[in-house]
Design a protein around this nucleic acid. Structure first.
Length: 610
RNA sequence: GGUCCCGUAGCUCAGCUGGAUAGAGCAACUGACUUCUAAUCAGUAGGUCACAGGUUCGAAUCCUGUCGGGAUCACCA
């Protein structure tokens, strides 16, 4: 039974029958009463005053008077245009009984495919990926809870010029080192060669700028108002493509890869495997995973085929130089290239192929891409192209475009080395949580392994909550110092509420608790807690359908906060009567269930002690 | 320039399909542990909800315009 619809129905019924005003239940606004007023739920009278030519007092008494005839409403009070209703103890207890965290079921069960993380294989994961991963994982939990079958996946960009740069740098400067020999994590190892490549390229470019050729090109091509620095900066791409030896070598490597050269393929596979080992270690740390993984090296060919097919169907057209395009100007977008003049594929081509592969594999009802909002236009175009290709799933696609993560000092820039590394960040919160645990000493009697488990839950709880509590669509500022906080509006604050409850329940199990007494009169704090619990599934559903887990995070915080206050003001194990104690144990047990479930939705574990 | 997003306390953020006196946390100050875990609780202080119009019984919320910040418009991914 849901309480708000029940009230809506009752009020609508009165308006329709007593006042001859046909009213749909949904047209009645009902919300929990604000704390400063007496009552549990509030009906807003304003919308009905004009059509009934009535005033708040008259209408309020009419509706309220009728409502208190029912046993479940005990009192009403009119304040301005608001009708505040008080519910009976019996109803509150019944509502509390009905609180559950069982996953919903849907028939037929829809299938949703969620893509997240999707890194390139040339550098380790960073803070931006963490936000992406948390959002994707959380959406997966949410959809699963509301009854969907969820397939978690990613697309790994394992081919292309970037990985070739790392491969070349390793060939030239690697001296046969491997992650196992250096003891380094594979993704960091390979990422370092990507950095080395860029350093060597910079050196090479600077030297070239001093050569007669470099000088001549600047003199002939620079605009008058352009100094040497800004000219060379703008020219870097052309230099890489036309003059650079490193550029030439890495492109040769790419061509060798595309022609399937065995040595190149072997090196490529080896280095990518190192990277995957590293990624998997980070995913394990974060407690996330995937059901299936797609690699661009395996999907881009289908993309290319589809382009040829679309060309034949005249959805696309070929330019004189051989490149293939689609014209989307009639849909308010630009022309978009789909195959380069040399026949190689671009990002869009690959994404088309990947979408088709997935649909063939899973026949999903919906597919969601968790990708930063900087790529909004790309996905708008992708979805439009899939629609024009006549793909059956084309109107069931969604781009979860989350905002970028900034630092207090500004944007993260890999060139300037201001990127926050995922592994470093996790290590840092772990250290912080470990130190706090030592200082408190609450868990020092546990086995080291047990302690470590708790510390991990707390550390990751802090980090994850700090990120997931912010509305997904909004750009956010990540303050590393604040992310280490374990107090206030944080994950550990919520975990602490749970731990307090678990501690009471463990103690209660040692005691003789009498079942009994229906005569307990609820205090306002208890009514408020139950009414919060009743909002839980709406919150989950809204978060899922809106692809924004932050609502669940804020809910969990709100519930924990109300509980902490309640805990402070009322004793459970020393309640004034057996009936009070029995009721309160039941209440906090439900609170702990909902807290745990809501944090599960966010990918955060609850420790039993902390 | 076109399109899209954002602007709420010193800082980081809530504020649901419009509803009562706009809320939290951090930072500052004050108080509460012989009592269920003080990673807690209570209190003080802090606001022109960017600005200006409009719609409405009622606007932080919806509409229009202005200002400020950001993203994007590659034969990059």
């Amino acid at each position: 039974m849901e309480i708000i619809p029940k009230i809506q129905l009752a009020v609508a019924d009165i308006l329709t029958k007593q006042h001859q005003l046909d009213t749909a239940p949904e047209a009645v606004t009902v919300s929990p009463t604000k704390r400063e007023f007496t009552g549990d739920y509030t009906v807003i009278l304003f919308p009905f005053l004009k059509p009934l030519k009535s005033n708040p007092n008259e209408l309020g008494h009419s509706i309220g008077g009728k409502l208190v005839e029912q046993s479940w409403i005990t009192a009403y009070e009119i304040k301005g245009g608001f009708l505040n209703l008080s519910l009976s103890n019996a109803l509150w207890k019944e509502l509390l009984e009905g609180v559950s965290v069982d996953a919903r079921t849907l028939d037929p069960q829809p299938k949703i495919l969620i893509e997240y993380s999707s890194p390139n294989t040339n550098k380790p994961l960073h803070l931006g990926h963490i936000r992406n991963i948390l959002l994707g994982w959380s959406c997966a939990q949410l959809y699963s809870a509301i009854g969907y079958e969820v397939i978690k996946t990613q697309i790994i960009n394992d081919r292309g010029i970037a990985i070739c740069k790392s491969m070349l740098a390793w060939q030239l400067y690697g001296e046969g080192k491997t992650p196992s020999k250096t003891g380094q994590k594979g993704d960091h190892f390979v990422g370092d060669y990507y950095v080395i490549f860029n350093q060597k390229l910079d050196e090479e470019y600077r030297l070239w700028q001093q050569t007669p050729e470099g000088q001549r090109i600047r003199e002939t091509q620079a605009r008058q108002d352009q100094d040497a620095g800004s000219f060379y900066k703008a020219y870097a791409n052309t230099y890489f493509n036309e003059y650079s030896s490193l550029g030439r070598q890495s492109k040769e490597l790419l061509l060798k890869w595309e022609s399937g050269d065995p040595d190149t393929m072997h090196l490529w596979q080896t280095m990518n495997d190192w990277v995957y080992d590293g990624f998997n270690a980070t995913y394990r740390e974060l407690g996330v995973g995937f059901d299936t993984i797609y690699y661009e090296s395996q999907t881009y060919l289908l993309g290319k085929e589809t382009i040829e097919d679309g060309l034949a169907r005249e959805i696309f057209y070929r330019e004189e130089d051989g490149s293939v395009w689609i014209d989307l100007e009639d849909a308010g977008m630009d022309k978009k290239i789909l195959l380069r003049s040399d026949g190689t594929s671009v990002y869009m081509t690959q994404d088309i192929g990947t979408a088709q592969h997935r649909y063939r594999d899973f026949r999903f009802n919906r597919m969601v891409y968790v990708v930063g909002d900087e790529q909004e236009y790309h996905f708008k175009v992708l979805f439009e192209i899939l629609k024009r290709l006549g793909e059956p799933y084309a109107d069931q696609l969604f781009h979860l475009a989350y905002g970028m993560v900034d630092l207090p000092t500004g944007k993260m820039k890999s060139r300037e080395g201001t990127v926050v590394d995922a592994d470093d960040l996790i290590a840092e919160v772990l250290m912080e949580a470990r130190q706090a645990a030592i200082d408190r000493g609450e868990i020092s009697d546990l086995q080291p392994q047990e302690q470590e488990k708790i510390i991990r839950a707390i550390a990751l709880g802090a980090l994850k909550f700090f990120i997931i509590k912010v509305n997904a669509k909004k750009r956010m500022t990540f303050n590393p110092a604040e992310s280490l906080d374990l107090q206030g509006q944080t994950g550990p604050y919520i975990q602490n509420a749970y731990v307090r409850i678990r501690s009471i329940i463990r103690k209660a199990e040692q005691m003789e608790v009498s079942r009994g007494g229906q005569d307990y009169e609820l205090v306002p704090e208890e009514r408020e807690l139950i009414s919060l619990l009743l909002l839980y599934w709406d919150t989950v559903e809204q978060a899922a359908l809106g692809f924004d887990p932050s609502g669940v995070a804020n809910f969990a915080y709100q519930l924990a906060k109300s509980f902490h206050r309640y805990y402070h003001d009322f004793s459970i194990l020393r309640a004034e009567s057996a009936a009070a104690m029995a009721f309160r144990l039941g209440l906090i047990r439900k609170i702990s269930m909902v807290l745990q479930h809501s944090m599960l939705m966010l990918g955060i574990d609850m420790p039993e002690r902390m």
